[in-house]
Structure formats: C-alpha cells, structure tokens
Write a protein that binds this DNA or RNA. Sequence first.
DNA 1: CCCACTTTGGCAACAGTGTTGCGAAAGCGC
DNA 2: GCGCTTTCGCAACACTGTTGCCAAAGTGGG
Lengths: 406, 406
Amino acid sequence: MTPAFPAGFPRLLSGSLPGAANLPAVRGHNAALVLDLLRAAGETGASRPELAEGTGLTPQAVSKITARLRDAGLVAEAGRRPSTGGKPRTVWRLVRDARYAVGLHLDRDELTAVLADLLGGPVAVHRAPFDLGAPPERALEEAVEAVRVLLAPTAPEAGPRAGVLGVGVACPGPLEHRAGVLRRVTGFPGWDGFPLRDALAERLALPVALDKDTNAAALGLALRGADGAGSGSGGESFAYLHLGTGLGAGLVLDGTLYRGARTGAGEFGHQVVQVDGPECGCGDRGCLEALCLAAVARGDTAAAARALGVGAANLAGLLDIDRVVLGGRTVLADPEPYRAGVAAVLAARAERTDGRPVPVSTAPGGARLVADGAAHLVLAPLFGRLEPARGPLTWTPPGGEGVVGE
Amino acid sequence: MTPAFPAGFPRLLSGSLPGAANLPAVRGHNAALVLDLLRAAGETGASRPELAEGTGLTPQAVSKITARLRDAGLVAEAGRRPSTGGKPRTVWRLVRDARYAVGLHLDRDELTAVLADLLGGPVAVHRAPFDLGAPPERALEEAVEAVRVLLAPTAPEAGPRAGVLGVGVACPGPLEHRAGVLRRVTGFPGWDGFPLRDALAERLALPVALDKDTNAAALGLALRGADGAGSGSGGESFAYLHLGTGLGAGLVLDGTLYRGARTGAGEFGHQVVQVDGPECGCGDRGCLEALCLAAVARGDTAAAARALGVGAANLAGLLDIDRVVLGGRTVLADPEPYRAGVAAVLAARAERTDGRPVPVSTAPGGARLVADGAAHLVLAPLFGRLEPARGPLTWTPPGGEGVVGE
DNA sequence: CCCACTTTGGCAACAGTGTTGCGAAAGCGC
DNA sequence: GCGCTTTCGCAACACTGTTGCCAAAGTGGG
C-alpha cells in the first residue's frame, strides 16, 4: 500500500486546529518530541538513532536538536550503548534538575505544595492547614506564602527560584482553566468568579496554570505511568476516578488531558445509573455519587465498588479507554476491594462483548497525587503535552534568549 | 500578561504526539489551515487579510499559500469586498468541483453511494439493495460495482474518476478503522476479520477509509454544521446519537472525530442507566438501548425520548459537549418528540447546575446522512481534520507532483 | 480633477528549519 | 593489522515563513 497522498499534501502535524506553523514553532515542536521521548525513556535514556526512529526525524536533525538541548542544559550524555559492530551509540538522558515546577494543591482543609524536577519527581514538599471557606484574599495570601516557603531554600546563591518554570494549581471544581477563574466551588460560593490564576501569577511573578484537582491527577498519571513504572509514552487513553468527599473523574484521551471547552469534562459523580433511584443532593435521582457514598456510609464497600464499576464500564465503553485508575481518600483507605469490585464489573462486560477486560489499578503517590499532578500542568508543555501556562516570565534562560533556540 | 515562554520554546503545533515536523509537513499543515477556513467560510469566501487573521499566518505567507492552492485548482478568486478606504480585498473561495470523494454506506439491507464535491455536497447518488449477510466476497463485489456505476458518467473525456480522491466507507460496527478490518458485525459473523479497506482499495485502485456509520455521520455533521448552516468551524464538541436498529453514538471532541484506539468509542446503547433494570440482549441489565427500544416498541415515544435524554445528559456532563444531534430511522420518522424530550432532560440538568442547557437538534440530510459523512472520511484530511485514507493513488495531480506542493 | 491617504498584495532578500552527501571517528571481528 | 559496520558532525542545499519595501487600487477632501 503506497501512501494515499503525495508528499506535501495537506496533512496534520498532529491534531490540526490551532496555530499556524512557522519555523520557531517547528523547532519547538520537534524539540518537544525529542524531550518527550527522553522523558518516557527515563533511566534507560535514548541514543540519537533511537530518537530518530521514535520521532520520525532524520538522525542528522536529531543531532542538531540534541545539541541545542544540551546547550540549554535540558539533556546530557549518559554513557554509551554496547557496540553492535560499529561505533557505539551515545546515550542521552533528561537532566532532572535542569528546571523545576511547583505543584500546588488547594483542598478544602489542607494545602500541599510540591517542588518537582523535570520528571515530576519531588524535591521538596510543604504541607499546611488551609481553609477554602476563608475569604479569597486571605486564602490567596496563604497560598502565596506556601509557595514562598517552598522555594526559599532553593539555590540561594543563584537567586531565589532559579530554574522554576511556573506554578501549577489544582482546586476542586468547577472552574475555567482557560480563563484561570474559579466557579462556585461546592459549598464555597465566595470564590465564584475569582481570578485565581492571574492573582497568583502577579503575586508570585511566575507563570501559573489552573485546573481541577482530578485533571491534575490524571495528567500526572499520564506523564509518569499509573503504576509509577515510567512509560506514559504514546497516546494511551485512561480515566482517573476519584472517590473522596465527592466523586469525579479526570480523562486522558489519546495521551492528552481532555478538559472540554468549559473545563467541565470529567463530571462523573452525577452520571445517572438508576433512573428513579434514590435522590441525590443535586436534585436528580440515581446519581453515581449518591449511590456510592450511601454505600460507603453504611460500610458496604462491595456495593460502593459495584456502583463505581457500573460507572466505569459506561465510561470505558463510551470512550474506548485503555485502563482505569482509582484514587481519592475513600478508595485509598482500603484500595483492594474497590479495585477488585470495579475490575469485576469491567471483566463481566468484556466477556459479554468478547473484548479484553479494561485493567484497573489504584493510584500511586498517595496524598501527594494531586499536588504532583499540578506540577505537571507546568511541565507538560515542555513535552508537547499541554498548552503553556500563562503569566509573567521571570526566569531567564542561560542564553538570554529562547531556551532551545540558540 | 506576557507569554510564559520565550519564542522557540517547545510548544505544541497542535495536539502533539504524532509526527515530526519538516518543511513539507509545515507546508501541508498551513495549506490545510487555509483550506479549512475557506471551507468554513462557504459562499461568503475569505480575503487574504481575513485568512491571515484566522490562521495566525502573516499576510505574505497567506499570499504564497493561496497562490499555490490556486495553481493546484483548489481555490479561486471570487470578486472583491467593498473598499474600506484602500485597495479592496480580493475574495477567495473553494472550488467545489476541484476534487471529488465517494461516500459509501453499507447498511444491513441497503447500499448508498454518493459522489461528493470538495464541500461534501452531493453530485450523484446511487442506491441499491444490499445484503450484509451475504458472503463477504459477494458483498464486496456489489460494493465495487456500486462505486463503478457511480463513477462511470464522470468526466468521460478526462478519463474515468478524474479528480476523485478516494472512497470513504461506513459500516455498522464493530470494526477497526486503523487496520480497515471488520469485526463481528452484529448478526453477521461472516465478516469477522475481513480486510474490507484493503480489498476495496485494491479492487477500485483508489484510497479507501473505513469507519463506523455513526462516526461517519458525526464527522459529516462536524464539517458542515449540524443544521446545514455551514460553519463547522472551530473546535466544537458534540455527540451524534443514532437511534435505529440499535443505539449508537459518534463523538466529535474539540473539532476532531474521537474514535478510540480500537474504534470502540461511541458505544452508547449499552450504557447502563438502570442497575437491576430489565434485561438487555447483551446480557446486562438496564442498558439504554433496551429501555429505548422497549419504549419505542410499545409506542411510548415520550419514554423513549426520556431514556435517551438521560443517556445524553450523562454524556454531555462527562464530556462537556456543546450540543447534541439526534438521528437514525426511529428518530427521523417523528423527530420533534425526541428532540423535545431529550432537550427537556438536558434543560432540567442545566437548571440544577446553573449552566446553560445543551442545545438539541435533529440531523439533516435524512437517509443520506451516513453516506455523505463517509465521503468526508476522504475529504477531511484535506482540511486537516483527519489522518489521510490509505490505499493506492491513481489520481495524478495537474503538476505531476504533489497537489499543493508545486 | 487632483492629490493625500489608506489598504492590499507582490517582489526580493533573509533567517533558519530539516535534508542530503560525504567523510572522520570509533568500535568489532577475523 | 585490516576490512567492515555504525555513529555522527560538517558543509552545501532546498524550501519554509518573515521582513522591508514599493506598486497597485481604491476612498475622500479640496
């Protein structure tokens, strides 16, 4: 089968829609491709020929790109592969501490701030009590203070915050990630319309990205592999289901976080799975959240898991996803029954449709999951996995100009 | 707010993951951007400055690109805009009959073949009885024959099939669009594993793209606007719900057809909305399809619409979509009650969440909807909306080389 | 009717991307 | 020691969009 269109025929660079492609964009795109492959390669690293194979670039192009990335300090040589009869390949690896990102998780009663390296690994953690019900200005002040405390000891001689790319912030929804504005956080109406992203960006003089807690968690899982086994390579699709105070989901489709135009995607708790079922706080009947939480309240973990499984099966069928990851306080308090219960429902469904059952796992990272993921809101753009955060740029790259350019 | 990263910093061209960007890819990408804007502009057309504004390209780049596209015959000047104090703008429009595509809908008992122009408009239609239960080889023969009949009268002097880009084929699922292979079409096990795409491509000597009927319909709706009002511009998200023999869905997320890795996305009929509900043919209980079809069977349209609405509301919440389009024989036989019923459920939900209700409409295009959409499986790649079809290329562009490239 | 002004859009030179051709470097195996 | 394989850099190249500049083609006021 020959290709359907001659070379140069209109063809996606990836998903099309946004943006014109000019030379800087091409450079950035290909650099991101290489970085993403190196990220996925982890400790193993990757040689130039392997990067060429993986990206579709020519070896010579890879040579130029790795040289630029080396000069920017983002990658470094790390040994060689055994020879296969010729000159041995030089192995490249990501320089973990070349840049940092802050992940900030603002939960109802607690705040978690994480300083993460390029791979998302934790460098420092700061935890503090927090009151989402306090007046926004006061809460904002506490968030700012937490980031300051976190960054204080970093590279004191190179000036504070050297190499910090920005701050990713994760909150309970609803909110609008594109505008960086909170909506009526359940139970905390004072936040409605508060421009959290811009306020934080101004106070911290750093780029800030805002998203829902479930989205941040899902993004983090997408970039490090749900089992912590690295990977997070290709365009896999999965759902992160979070059962805690409420029930929500984060969706990663084809390797990209799917948020919807209004950051409303992942509304999972009020999926109706029992028409004319018991009333839910939302006013509807038979919502998944109501069923799950009722079962949890009466100690019937099996029933809660079964309900969760029905929702997971609906979701898995609708979106043809590759795996399901469970998290949230309720699940993590006693993970196995939930995992097994959800897996059982999915297995039963797979048997009926002659398909492979969708694997189910529980989220690693424990209480830091969301904060770690929030850091990835800032890191992911480097690897071409998300649009960049917005805000003032204070960190100036070594060359003084573009990091990768020159 | 300054941009977060200096120019040239790794940044998405669009959705990342696939493909390296080289110069031909850039050319194709930008050409597709321009073509897509012109497609969305329809009769109105667009001037160079408008295209520059819409794509983000510089006016000079747009000039070069439109010149290439004019030489390829894909676009043409079409009058001028009134002057605003200076030289009036030249209006460009897509040349509808510059290229053609065939859309082939293989249904259980009928076959529809459509010859469509660049905009997806019908040029010729051919309908024939068809038996999906027949041996694959015989069905294949009939499909080939139908395409031959459809193409026979086209441009007899320029050789048959001049300007035909390829054939888009839509079938009932399940199938795998990437491999171009059918799976156990419900009730017709003989098709399991049959490489329909490659077989057709070889017999017709044309590129062929294969997809589910619901996906083809959704793609068609995405590219012409559900109400036939043109548009289909930006990255909107919607769901096409098809109620006929069965119940299925086609999903368009952020302007792109979402199919899932195994073409399994859009599995809507067996979403469980009533745990412990009535048994479904699939072996589960409380499936949407079972509830809907039972209501239809007993003549209770209102109940069928209400059930459909519950499913639509679940879907709309989970994916944060912009609108819902209803179609399929059952709905189209008496559209309004379904539209109103589904809209009512969505409106009630919107009221509870203080959101805007998701608009509901019924699909235009009637019985030809799927066949029209199938043609778009071939057309969409031109506009950067889908990866290209695969198969032998027989149609040689004017220049002898790439269409857009020289 | 003329002239200043605005806007469009082409031409030419340019910066910078990945590509190609070729050769040096660095190992393996006989 | 020598031929062979493989890696990888240098130099020339093709071609992209970009920039600077100017001609073309209108409007509108005097």
